[in-house]
Amino acid sequence: MNILVTGANGFVGKNLIAELKNRGFNNIFEFTRESDSSLLEKYTKECNFVFHLAGVNRPKDDKEFMEGNFGFTTKLLELLKKHGNESSVLVTSSIQAEKDNPYGKSKKAGEDLVFAHSIETGAKALVYRLPNLFGKWSKPNYNTVVATYCHNIARDLDIQVNNPDANLTLCYIDDVLDEFLGALEGKPTIQNNYCVVPITHNIKLGELANLIRGFKESRNNIGIPNMENALTKKLYSTYLSFLPEDKFSYDLKMNSDHRGSFTEFVRTPERGQVSVNVSKPGITKGNHWHHTKNEKFLVVSGEGLIRFRKIDSDEIIEYRVSGDKLQVVDIPTGYTHSIVNVGETDLVTVMWVNECFDPEKPDTYFLEV
């Protein structure tokens, strides 16, 4: 299948082409503003499907709206008709097409052209009135407020929140791609003659700003956003794509002494915390028990011995662990326990605990195994 993508260098175009290639589509005609105009003649003759993504949304002069969103669409459809090409045409419009402003009028005019082309030629018209899109490779101060907020907050730049209570309808780029690939396969989602992306999210502008600020702060409090919330998960992925390339890494606080080190990696209120414990050869750590707090130990390097004793018993239970065989050991409540480095190299243990440490209620009681 030969697939024509106009606006191939844009936010949606880049993501779409990457996913088309992921799914094995290799004959992709990429057309951009910089492309030789003669290529459009060839592409419209040979293509089997058209993703018409090209458009103008932030011109210097309002008249460019009509030139970019109506004029180029006219040229594209005329060439398809000239070659007798009845390929389906998927066009990205906007919810702004319902409004009486220069951008909305230009989008509505483009829609009307595509519907008229369909009636005249029999080619299928797939018109998507899209809400605010967000995701990787979007442009700040151009595509979406999400891109602007992510870009600025990641760089400690100010953001404007003019109306915190303003409601936004957002749509994630991966959900758009799933819908577009479904349309390519002949399974678009249609409502009242228009095509729609069935998954959208609503959020207030102020909530959006606070959420993205929280993503930045999570490096300081070693937190993880609530990934059970679909919008939060998608926004966090988008935020990370805007990190400056020299800021991918960040330091953790290592608590070090002659015995080794203990470093908290992740803290979450609903899933507990993860830490990395390093013990020098011969060092024993632990010798305590808990009422409710429970842990999982995973030795990833070195050799260790985990010892248990129920607090009302003299029987000692031992588990030998090694980085050569990754094995999780649960630490039940009511058992005093310790871990000793019995090897000749550092013992590195990943430790998960079901609750974040609270100095006011540590639930940790010293008792030799």
Rank of each mutant, 00 (worst) to 15 (best):
338 S>M: 11
183 A>M: 09
248 F>L: 14
162 N>G: 14
235 L>Y: 09
311 I>R: 10
358 D>A: 12
258 H>C: 00
133 L>M: 14
307 R>Y: 07
263 T>M: 03
1 M>P: 07
58 R>A: 13
11 F>S: 01
16 L>R: 08
194 Y>Q: 00
181 L>V: 05
242 F>Q: 01
283 I>D: 05
25 F>K: 00
304 G>N: 11
369 V>S: 07
149 Y>T: 01
195 C>G: 09
301 S>I: 01
93 S>F: 03
340 V>K: 15
95 I>M: 13
307 R>A: 08
290 H>K: 09
345 T>R: 10
366 F>V: 12
30 E>H: 01
59 P>T: 06
310 K>G: 02
203 I>T: 10
358 D>C: 13
321 V>F: 08
84 G>Y: 10
133 L>V: 09
222 I>L: 15
276 V>N: 04
244 P>T: 05
282 G>C: 10
27 N>C: 01
61 D>T: 14
114 V>M: 00
37 S>H: 10
225 P>V: 02
97 A>P: 00
187 K>V: 13
51 F>E: 05
232 T>P: 00
270 E>Q: 14
202 N>D: 14
29 F>E: 01
205 L>V: 02
64 E>I: 05
366 F>M: 11
262 F>K: 06
164 P>S: 14
200 T>R: 04
105 K>I: 11
306 I>K: 01
19 E>Q: 15
336 T>G: 09
195 C>W: 02
66 M>F: 15
302 G>C: 12
299 V>P: 00
1 M>L: 07
36 D>L: 03
11 F>C: 04
326 L>S: 08
218 S>K: 05
97 A>Q: 03
271 R>P: 00
210 N>C: 08
68 G>F: 04
69 N>S: 03
55 G>P: 02
307 R>L: 04
189 T>E: 11
75 K>Q: 14
181 L>H: 09
354 N>P: 08
11 F>L: 07
311 I>Y: 09
233 K>C: 09
176 V>R: 02
156 D>I: 11
316 I>W: 04
18 A>W: 11
45 K>E: 15
177 L>V: 15
322 S>D: 06
217 E>G: 00
142 Y>E: 14
141 N>D: 15
231 L>Q: 00
215 F>N: 01
311 I>F: 06
227 M>H: 10
115 F>N: 08
185 E>P: 00
239 Y>K: 01
260 G>A: 13
3 I>G: 01
168 L>S: 02
263 T>H: 02
317 I>Q: 13
192 N>A: 13
293 K>C: 08
145 V>A: 12
365 Y>D: 08
363 D>I: 09
